[in-house]
Design a binder for these strands. Structure first.
Length: 907
RNA sequence: GGGCGAUUAGCUCAGUGGUUAGAGCGCUCGCCUCACACGCGAGAGGUCAAAGGUUCAAGUCCUUUAUCGCCCACCA
């Protein structure tokens, strides 16, 4: 039977089919009652703000690799998918969409707006799910979750009420970060800081009694309209007599007191500070200490309000300009100096944040933080990379109460009802009929919603059925591992740990792996708005999903950000193509195998393949023993690497095994065996090739699922075999381990490479078979070459290789030496180019001499001999002996060649 | 202001105190060899940022410095 397979791998031809195949029958559905050790992982739910970007691609690939790997190793595996409603971000997206259509979302009303967002959620969520399916994520789609679903909303209310009843959630009037564009409060974490060049305006505040004035320095003159005091340091002699006196606030007719407070830094500015309790965190605290009134001078959208008198209606920055002009006109502006300051920006829209005093809901964090730190200290949760642990502790130690209310319409409505009669608050799981304080029915639910991270913090248990003790919760909680980007350690990871411990008594995951961010070539965080983002869909189409997966993870060393480049993607695609073509090699030769009377069906059962490597004439051929030994080594590395989330190591070692060992050496070596006239020999070769290739596919499958699934189905498989994803991952068998084969084949590789080098150096006809000579003092080495003469001659393209004991003459041909052997192609028509050979040898000589000198020095050192481990000394001694042999050979060759050439070219 | 990280080949980066520091890409030379030119073979290319220290032994541990990043922080 002849098979047709395209010459080049075309991922577009096959990916869609398998993506569909995997989800069709819920192939990756988890079963809480299934046997085996558990591996569970919940997705960091992507925001429904658009589609997946390349960072998600990395994150999801890592999760999927580990999921597939564990599944193939017999774990009871759950990869739970889902999405986040992403309160402020999603609301912004929809608000903007409406604005683009000329609609102010506020005119729609809350209910209609929510309806529009749900429509958008369906669109964006649908896109995300489609992308996840497209990239082959092996999730259990029957367990998909959404943070704002009715089920999860119930969990949110449960948690809110419990925290309220425990006194951990409270409502207070406090100074918070306000975004005048998003029109909501923000937590400290949602504010990013940016250093900007600004000014320090020195303003004269005249004394109320007309005697002189105090100069205050401020970076924000517009807030002076809300000043309710000026503060000086109590021990500042310059201002001592002013304390308790009144000043007249310029541009208004208000009188404000001079107060004394140790918060003032005498060295800064003039040593006198204007106090604006409603618009500055420090001043807010000072205001509380001194019982000062708060005067909010702004509106929600950042304009000056009625309290700003003549400036009312002006934007805060326009007001700043006007105020400075007016002060100047009145001669109250002493001077303006340059001043660098860090301004707070809204994380989402980059608007300058306005500190404002307002009524908000808060969550006390300290006690939860302490328990979370203790758990991490006890290593109930491990963190990779480990240095993130310190960051975590640092943040947790300095944690402040969390503003959890947001003035948005998209989110979990706070389950609190305000009583119109007694003004008290009723907090309840279900909408209450009457006020729990006075019994009045005049209840109105709080307008605010919860910070989106509040529901995300519950994700590992809310998605598994908590507060019920469901089978899912019992089996899969705590989850095994959390994989996420390091930039949400505080937003999300820390809060999950705190909430998880608080509500379930257990950590939410056993381990956290914080992976890199994917950056642009210039090192910036990728951003769609800046046009620097890479579109994973386009890249998948261009290079193939498997290549993308390979590319991203091969660079994913923990702790460093990664940069995706065209070059790397091309390299990854080439690898996929290489695998494809290795398979093609098998297929185009199958006829020959079957012509010999063998049947493909004989290779279909895993039991048959698992017995590879098969022996011929009583022995496993060296090449097969070697390949399976290399496979075992690779599997060791892969296991170790995946267990410690060192994806790049695992992926690179798989790459090396497949390309270098399997393709470059194994396939090249066994080619003639496959068509050997000796049918028994040929059959053994075929069985071993099949066994090795099929194992290699399984080895590769978690990283490159599409390609391996496609090829695996083209190999003979037992009846009822559904998918490579459900097969067993190869296990490094004890019988595969074979250091002798590795050592022996390394010798053959060395000899073949040496002959090829000589051939290149002598510029010999690359197709012409040549006669060469081989010598070694070591009988075992000579035997090894003799045993494998056919292969060596063939790969080195030799007509014959004469094996003699001892050494070869160092002149009269192209030659390579090691301490163990010499190999030489005698001159026939061509000679060595001395202008190349002599400098090469001299350089080698120099390197060896230096190396020998340093080793001699070290071995001559008594302290070294007495302190270094025996093994190190032994190694050093034998290496030194080898180097000396090599040096002697090089010296001899140099003498010969120098003599021959008369005048050696200058080195 | 505090903290963390980085600095290794032309580029992007691995490197877990112990032989001659690796990979991919790029570069040079030679090959369309019947799986693969998305390929094959052979090469060149590195005082591991600088200085000091610990150690028998340092790219790896410590200190200082320089440069570049990132995070955190209420100095008006």
């Amino acid at each position: 039977m002849a098979r047709e397979i395209a010459k080049a791998y075309d991922p577009q031809q096959i990916e869609g089919r398998w993506a569909e195949f995997w989800i069709k029958d819920n192939m990756f559905r988890a079963d809480a009652h299934a046997p085996g050790p558990v591996f569970s992982i919940v997705i960091p739910p992507p925001n429904v703000t658009g589609s997946l970007h390349i960072g998600h691609m990395l994150n999801h690939t890592e999760i999927d690799i580990l999921t597939r790997w564990h599944r193939m190793r017999g774990f009871n595996t759950l990869y739970l998918p889902g999405m986040d409603h992403a309160g402020i971000s999603t609301q912004r997206v929809v608000v903007k969409q409406l604005a683009d259509k000329g609609i102010d979302y506020r005119t729609l009303g809350r209910e209609e707006f929510e309806k529009r967002v749900w429509e958008w959620k369906a669109e964006s969520g649908g896109k995300i799910i489609a992308q996840m399916k497209q990239i082959g994520e092996s999730c259990d789609w029957t367990r998909e979750q959404f943070t704002l679903s009715p089920e999860l909303s119930r969990v949110v209310r449960e948690v809110f009420v419990r925290l309220y009843e425990e006194g951990l959630i409270y409502r207070a009037h406090y100074l918070i970060n306000w975004c005048p564009t998003c029109l909501t409060a923000l937590s400290d974490l949602e504010v990013t800081h940016e250093e900007r060049q600004g000014h320090l305006w020195h303003i004269k505040y005249p004394a109320a009694d007309g005697g002189g004035f105090v100069v205050v320095a401020t970076t924000r003159p517009e807030t002076m309209l809300g000043d309710t005091a000026v503060a000086v340091h109590p021990e500042d002699e310059r201002y001592a007599q002013l304390i308790g006196k009144k000043l007249r606030l310029p541009l208004t007719n208000r009188e404000i007191p001079v107060i004394a407070d140790t918060m003032v830094d005498r060295e800064f500015g003039t040593g006198a500070v204007k106090i604006t309790p409603a618009h500055d965190p420090n001043d807010f605290e000072a205001g509380r200490r001194h019982n000062l009134p708060e005067i909010d001078v702004m509106t929600d959208d950042g304009k000056m309000n009625g309290n700003a008198g003549a400036y009312a209606g002006l934007d805060r920055f326009a007001a700043r300009k006007k105020i400075v002009e007016d002060l100047q006109a009145q001669g109250l502006l002493e001077k303006i100096t340059d001043h660098k300051l860090s301004v707070g920006l809204c994380e989402r829209c980059k608007t300058v944040v306005e500190p404002r005093a307002s009524n908000q809901w808060f969550c006390k964090m300290k006690s939860m933080a302490e328990k979370a730190m203790a758990a991490v200290e006890r290593n109930e949760i491990t963190m990779v990379p480990e240095n993130r642990r310190e960051e975590f502790f640092h943040w947790m130690r300095n944690i402040r109460d969390w503003v959890i209310s947001r003035q948005l319409w998209w989110g979990h409505r706070i389950p609190a009802w305000h009583c119109g009669s007694c003004k008290e608050v009723t907090v309840a799981r279900e909408t209450p009929a009457k006020c729990s304080h006075c019994g009045s029915a005049a209840l109105k639910q709080d307008d605010d919603v919860l910070d989106t991270w509040f529901s995300s913090a519950l994700w590992p248990f809310s998605t598994l059925g908590w507060p019920e003790e469901t089978p899912d919760f019992k089996t899969y909680y705590p989850t095994s591992l959390l994989i996420t980007a390091y930039d949400i350690l505080f937003f999300w990871v820390s809060r999950m740990i705190m909430m998880g411990i608080h509500f379930t008594g257990k950590v939410p995951f056993r381990a956290v792996y914080l992976h890199s961010l994917v950056r642009t070539a210039s090192g910036e965080k990728m951003s769609k708005s800046k046009g620097t983002g890479l579109d994973p869909v386009a890249l998948n189409q261009q290079y193939g999903t498997d290549a993308m997966r390979f590319c991203l993870t091969s660079m994913a060393a923990p702790g460093t950000d990664i940069v995706v480049s065209e070059d790397r993607l091309l390299g990854a695609r080439a690898f996929a193509n290489k695998i494809w073509n290795a398979a093609r090699f098998l297929f185009v030769n199958l006829d020959k195998f079957e012509e010999g009377g063998a049947k493909l069906e004989d290779l279909a059962s895993p039991e048959v393949r698992e017995q590879a490597p098969y022996a011929f004439a009583g022995d496993v051929p060296l090449i097969d023993g070697w390949l399976f030994a290399r496979l075992a080594d690779t599997l060791d590395v892969v296991k170790d690497a995946f267990e410690t989330q060192r994806f790049h190591e695992a992926v690179q070692s798989i790459y090396q095994f497949f390309w270098n060992d399997f393709c470059d050496w194994y396939i090249e070596w066994i080619k003639p065996e496959l068509t050997s006239a000796d049918r028994t020999r040929a059959t053994v070769a075929w069985k071993n090739l099949f066994g090795a290739f099929e194992a290699a596919l399984r080895l590769l499958h978690p990283v490159m699922p599409f390609l391996t699934e496609e090829l695996w189905h083209q190999l003979p498989q037992r009846a009822g075999a559904r998918s490579i994803a459900l097969e067993k991952y190869p296990e490094a068998r004890a019988t595969w381990r074979n250091t002798a084969a590795i050592k022996e084949f390394a010798l053959l590789q060395e000899v073949i490479t040496a002959v090829r080098a000589i051939r290149a150096e002598m510029k010999l006809d690359p197709k012409k078979k040549l006669a060469a000579q081989f010598s070694s003092e070591d009988a075992a080495t000579r035997d090894a070459i003799a045993r494998n003469l056919d292969g060596v001659q063939r790969l080195a393209l030799l007509s014959e290789l004469q094996i003699t004991p001892g050494k070869l003459p160092q002149a009269g041909g192209g030659l390579r030496s090691t301490s163990l052997f010499d190999v030489r192609i005698p001159y026939v028509e061509t000679e060595i180019d001395l202008a190349v050979e002599l400098p090469r040898l001299k350089k080698e000589l120099e390197r060896l001499s230096k190396d020998i000198a340093s080793k001699e020095r070290q071995l001559g050192d008594e302290t070294f001999r007495s302190r270094a481990p025996e093994k190190i000394i032994k190694n050093l001694e034998s290496t030194l002996a080898e180097r000396r042999v090599e040096l002697a050979k090089i010296e001899e060759r140099l003498r010969e060649l120098d003599g021959k050439s008369g005048a050696a070219p200058a080195a």
